[in-house]
Write a protein that binds this DNA or RNA. Structure first.
Lengths: 227, 227, 227, 227
DNA sequence: GATGAATGAGTCTTCATTCAT
DNA sequence: AATGAATGAAGACTCATTCAT
C-alpha cells in the first residue's frame, strides 16, 4: 500500500497484461487513478491514462465507475481508512509520556498516511476543494475533523499530565498537523520532481520538526526562556 | 494591489466593458489568471473565464499572451517579487534579538507573500510541478532557494549570537518554512471554501506557530527540559 | 479507384453512417481529403468537411491522422504511386518506334496519373509549395525528378535511334511534360467548374498536343521546314 | 509592375514607412495582396500580412476594400489589363511570317503577362476556381476567352497563308496556350521555391517550346515526316 | 464482461472585421 | 483618414463517454 514514490511524472506500467482476476479490477483502477490524480491533478489526468496504468481498456473503466468524477469520489472514499476509532483507543490506552505519544503518533501517521496514497489524497484535494466542494465537505467530516479530535486528545492528555504547557487546544492542534501537511505536500508534489529539494532526508525532516515541536510544547521549567 | 478578490469560486465581473486601456490589460489579465489558476487549478480554468474576469473578450487575452501556458508562465514570473536582495539587507542590518527578527520575518512574509497573490502561486505550482517541470525549476531557482538562504541567514545569526540552540541549518530552515507553506496552502484552498475550518484566526495561527517555534529554537537554559 | 467523385464542389454524403470498419477508415479519409484538398485547397478545406465526406465524425479523423497537416502529408505520400521503376523497365523493353513510345507513355500517364487522384495532388501541391516546402522537396524527390528521368530516357532513345532530332535533354523533357502539367491543372481546377471550357474533349486535347509534339520532335527530313 | 520574383515565401517589406501619398494606398494594397495571394494562396494569406506589406495598418485596408473577398476581386480585376483590343490590332497589322508572329506573341505575352503579376493571377485563380465560381466566370469572360480569340486569329492567319498546316482551331489554340499556362504555373509556384527545378533558364524553356511548336505547326514539306 | 472504434461537446487559438480614438 | 485595440465567429484539436461487437 505504501507505494514507492516514482521520480518521474509519467507513470510506467509494468504489470503483466491481462493476468488479473476480474475482482481486482476496481482496486487496480483505483490505485492507478489515485496515483495519476495525485501526480498530475484531476483535470490533467485522462481516463485513458488511468485505464492504461490499470492494464484495462478505456471502456472497462466506465464499467466500474460511471464517470471520471465518480472515479475521483471513489478514490477519496477508498483512502479515508476510517481507523480513527482504533487510533483513539490507542491514545486513550497509551501509558508512556505525552512526548512519547506524540512521537508515536507521528510514526503511525507517517506509516499509515504520510507515506501512503492516503497522503496523496490530501494533496490532491487541496487543489480541488474549490472545484468539488461537496467532496471537500465529505473529506473534512471524515478525515480532517476526526483527525483534529485525535490530536486534541493527545494535547489535552499532555496538558492534563503537566507535561505540556497550557495551550488553547484549537490553536495548538495546528502545531501537530502543520508539519504533517507540509510533509504530505512536499512528498506528493515538489518531492516527486526534485527529490533532493528538501536538502535532508524525510526522516530527518520529521525528526527535526517533532523535536522542536516537543521542545516548544514542554511545560516550562523553573528557569524560563526569554522570548 | 490588483483586482478585488471575491471569496466565491465563480467570479462575477461588474467592471464596465469596452474601456480601452492597453497598458492596463496585461496586469488585469494577470490578476484574473492568477486568481483563477490558484482557485481552480490551471487545467480546470478556461481562458474564456480569465478573459471574462478581466472584462475582455477571449481574443483580447491572446493579444497579450500567446497561449494559455504563456499566461501561466507570466503569472508565475510576475509574482516572484524578487525582493530577496533587500530582505537580506534587512536581516543583516537587524539590531534586535533573533527572536524578534524571526517574528519580524513572519510579519513581512505574511504581508508580502503569505497574504498576497504571491502565496497563491506557490499553491498553484505545487499542483503543477509535475506538469510543468521547467516552471518548477524556475520557481525553485528564483523563490525557494533564495528564500531558504534568507532563512538560513536568520538562523545562523541566532545561533552565532547564542540565542538559538545549535542546529543543522539544512534541517532547521524547514522549522521556519513549514508553517509558512501550510498557511499558504490552507489560505488558498480549504480556507477559501471553509474559512472557519482553521478554528482560529489566521493571526492566532501564525502567532501560535511562531511562539512554539521560538520556544523550540531557544538556547537551552541551565535546567533542561526532559524530552 | 476510390470514392466516387461528384462534379460539384460541395459534396453530398449518402453512405450509411456508423459502419465500423477500422481498416477502411484511413483509405476513406484519404480519398475524401484528396478530393477536397484538390478542389478547394488545403486552407479552405475544413477537417470536418473531410470527415463528413468520409462519413465519420470529426473526432474519428483525428484517430487516424494526428493533425490536418499530417493528413495532407498522408494524402501526398499515398498518391505518389512509386511505379517509376516498372515504367522504366517498360521504356527500356519497348520495341516500337519512339513516336509510338511517346504515344504509349501519354496513354499510361493519363490512365495512371493525369485522370486520377495522383494528378490532383500535383495541382494541390502547386498551390502549396510555398506553404509546405518540406513537402515540396519530398514531392520533387519522389515524383518530379524520377518522372523527368523517365522522360529523358524516352527522348534519348528517340535521338539515339535517329527518330528524334538532336535536342538538349534538359530542355526537351519539358516538351513532354508541359502538356501533362497543363492538362492536370485544367482537369482539377477550371475543368471542374467549366467542363466545356476546353472547347474540345480531353482526348482530342491530348491527341492534338502529342501529334504536334511528335511533328516537332521528328528528325528533319531532307527538305527542311523554314522556320 | 513586373515585380522581381522573390525567392522566399515570406515577403520582406523594405519600403520606407509612412512615406506615401494617400492616393497610392489602394495600389500598394493591391500589389501587396497580389503578391501574397499568389505566393501563399487566398485562404493562407492574412489581411494583416497584406496591410503590413503595404505599410499600412489592418484597419486602413478595410477603408479601401470592404472585405478580404472584395480585395481578391479587386486584385483580379486590376490585373486583367484589358489590352486585347490593341493586341488584336497588332495581329491584324502584322506583316511578317506567321512563325515570326507567334514568336512575337510569345515575347509580348511574356513581358506583359507571363513575367508579370497578371500571370500570378492565373495561378492564383486556378486554385480558387471552385471557391469563387463567379470570379472564375468573370476571368474567363475577360481574359481566357478573349485571349483564345487572339490565338485563334494568329493560327487562322498562318493557315490562311499556307504557313501552318490545317488544324482544328479549337484544338490548336491549346498548342499555343499550353506552354504559357505551364510557364506561369511554374514561375509562380515551384519556381519560387526551387528556382533551379526547371534545369534550364526560363528563356531557354520558352525558346524550346516555341521552336518545337512551330516545327509542329509548319505546313508539311513535300517529303512528309513519318509519324 | 471487455473492448476500442466512434462520437460530439468543449477548449484553445486564429483572424476577418469593427470602431473608439 | 488612419490607427490598432477589441471582438467573436469559426476552425483545429481533445477527451469523457457511448455502444456495437
Amino acid at each position: 500500500m505504501s507505494a514507492a514514490v516514482p521520480t518521474s511524472c509519467t507513470s510506467n506500467p509494468k504489470v503483466p497484461r491481462r493476468s488479473r482476476r476480474k475482482e481486482a479490477r476496481p482496486a487496480e483502477l483505483l490505485a492507478a487513478a489515485t496515483r495519476l490524480f495525485v501526480e498530475k491533478g484531476y483535470a490533467a489526468t485522462r481516463v485513458e491514462e488511468v485505464a492504461a496504468l490499470a492494464n484495462v481498456s478505456k471502456g472497462t473503466l466506465f464499467l466500474y465507475y460511471a464517470s471520471k468524477e465518480a472515479l475521483l469520489k471513489a478514490v477519496v472514499r477508498e483512502n479515508i481508512a476510517g481507523s480513527f476509532a482504533e487510533w483513539q483507543a490507542e491514545v486513550d490506552n497509551f501509558t508512556g509520556t505525552s512526548a512519547a505519544l506524540v512521537r508515536y503518533a507521528f510514526q503511525v501517521w507517517q506509516a499509515r498516511i504520510g507515506d501512503t496514497e492516503a497522503g496523496g489524497i490530501y494533496k490532491l484535494l487541496s487543489s480541488e476543494f474549490c472545484n468539488f466542494p461537496e467532496l471537500a465537505q465529505f473529506y473534512f467530516d471524515e478525515v480532517i475533523y476526526p483527525g483534529n479530535d485525535l490530536v486534541r486528545r493527545i494535547l489535552a492528555r499532555g496538558m492534563a499530565r503537566g507535561e505540556f504547557r497550557q495551550l488553547d487546544l484549537n490553536a495548538a492542534i495546528h502545531l501537530i498537523t502543520t508539519p504533517m501537511f507540509t510533509y504530505i505536500q512536499w512528498r506528493n508534489s515538489i518531492g516527486m520532481t526534485f527529490p533532493d529539494s528538501l536538502g535532508i532526508s524525510p526522516e530527518v525532516y520529521i525528526e527535526t520538526q517533532v523535536e522542536n515541536l516537543l521542545r516548544g510544547l514542554a511545560a516550562l521549567p523553573p528557569t524560563t526562556v526569554s522570548v
